[in-house]
Amino acid sequence: MGKAFDLSLLGTFLPELLAYLPITLLILAASLFFGLLLGLLLAIPRLYNIPVLTQLVVVYVSFIRGTPVLIQLFLVYYGLPAVLGLVHLDLSRADPLLFVIVTYSLSSAAFLSETIRGAVNSVDLGQTEAAYAVGMTARQAFGRIVLPQALMVAVPNFANKVIGFLKDTSLAFTIGVMDMMGRGQTLISATAHALEVYISLAVIYYLVVIVLERLFAASERKLQQHERKWASA
């Protein structure tokens, strides 16, 4: 057990931990960026019903959904060096942050591909046909007509996913990443005031989530103002 509970320690711990918030946000932003790109790629086979690739994507998505992200993290942490070792790439000195970003990118891609697929499928086929009828190529029709409408549909779902991903990043410390959680662990070792550290962490994560929710709600309102004008009557 730790030492006697001391609320005043929060005043020291909160700024200590907040200093590592940028690392947490970096993990989130980088894995969202790569996750969106990969998610879009993963959505394509199912949207266009491409044989073999579709089945591969289905298995991949179901695997990611069906396994804890902590285990995915360890699989990447131990597996990636083994795989890259085969082509003589040495990862033994790589920053653990790399493994975290790879894991969360791979993981969020699976979830985001489902969001993207659902949103794209929600766009009426008549929109694509009208685009073809005015002489657009398939790529133009998708990029200019379908995708913008799908993104609007995807925003609320996307917001929920992002908040989930943020909380998932709190596992990165398990492979030695110095994010807020990582810093929290070192504070606990140094002071033995575990409860105060976890209360501080809870407060910070909660506040960040609230800020994110506010931001998404604001952008959603903004989109809706626009959308109300073009949503199907």
């Binding site: 008549g126 929109q127 009208a130 073809y132 005015v134 002489g135 190529t137």
Partner: peptide, 20 residues
Amino acid sequence: LELRRKTAMVFQHYNLFKHK
């Protein structure tokens, strides 16, 4: 593509681009 660029279509349900 060329056939489509030589023709145009008016749809029963209009199919206007909703976001434009």
